[in-house]
Simulated assay, not measured.
Amino acid sequence: MRVLKILIAEDVRMVRGALAALIELEADLTVVAQAERGDMILPLAMRHRPDVAIIDIDLPAIDGLTAAQLLHEELPSCKTLILTGLSRPGTVRRALAASVSGFLLKDSPSARLAEAVREVSSGRRVVDPQVALTAWDAGDNPLSPRELEVLRFAADGAEAPEIAAGLGLSVGTVRNYLTAIVMKLNARNRVDAVKIATEAGWLP
């Protein structure tokens, strides 16, 4: 029987310990490395050569999807299974773009975790049905590339004059973009627009 080597990346120590304990209950799975920050994943993976990395999406230093992309580029033999407590509709698109192998909600049954690890290891892609449905319902991004640029500045707290200077636009043009963004997203204001776009995965 081949034993699959697992890397776990989770910043909450208790959750990380629980995941490791669940994995070690399986005869064909063993934990070879644990990381509490995203920037620890690649060095640990290069040292231990895991078959599957279970990665929490919200990690300090480097977020889980960025770490998964780096891992795919440097160690493509290691499959990645993203865990999240959030079912943001755009996150699945980001995850698939990052070449992750699976996407599982943290409140999935514990037995599902081991099944998902085996499935991604064998080359199959696993996406939690609830997340897939949410992503399907979200629709496409209605914002143009320029509107997204303006909204990124707004997300960082920039006001219209700062955005105008950063993008080489007039202040009036920026205000027009902001108004269009709010209307397209059916938002209450620009702060609400940033929240909507972020949760949809359009503003990573």
Rank of each mutant, 00 (worst) to 15 (best):
L7S: 12
A9T: 03
A9W: 07
E10F: 07
E10P: 02
R13F: 14
R13L: 09
M14Y: 10
V15T: 13
V15S: 09
G17D: 12
L19Y: 13
A21H: 15
I23R: 14
E24L: 03
E24C: 03
M40D: 15
P43Y: 00
P43F: 00
P43L: 01
L44G: 03
A45W: 04
M46L: 15
R47V: 00
H48W: 13
V52P: 03
I55Y: 11
D58S: 11
D58V: 09
P60T: 04
L65W: 14
A68K: 08
Q69Y: 15
L70W: 09
L71V: 06
H72F: 12
H72M: 02
E74G: 07
P76Y: 10
P76R: 03
T80R: 10
I82K: 01
G85S: 15
G85M: 11
R88C: 09
P89W: 01
V92M: 09
V92L: 15
V92S: 12
L96S: 06
A98P: 03
V100N: 04
V100C: 12
V100L: 03
S101A: 13
G102T: 06
F103M: 04
P109Y: 00
S110D: 15
A111Y: 13
A114L: 12
E115Q: 14
E115H: 14
A116M: 10
S121M: 00
P129T: 02
V131M: 14
A132S: 11
T134C: 11
A135N: 06
D137I: 14
G139N: 05
D140W: 01
L143W: 13
P145W: 05
L148Y: 01
L148H: 02
E149S: 15
V150N: 13
V150C: 10
V150P: 10
V150G: 13
F153K: 09
A165P: 03
G166K: 04
G166A: 13
G166Y: 02
G168E: 10
G168M: 10
S170I: 12
R175K: 12
Y177P: 07
L178V: 10
M183I: 08
N186A: 11
A187R: 03
N189K: 01
V191L: 05
V194N: 06
V194C: 04
K195M: 02
I196Q: 04
A197Q: 01
A197G: 01
A200F: 09
A200L: 01
G201A: 12
W202K: 01
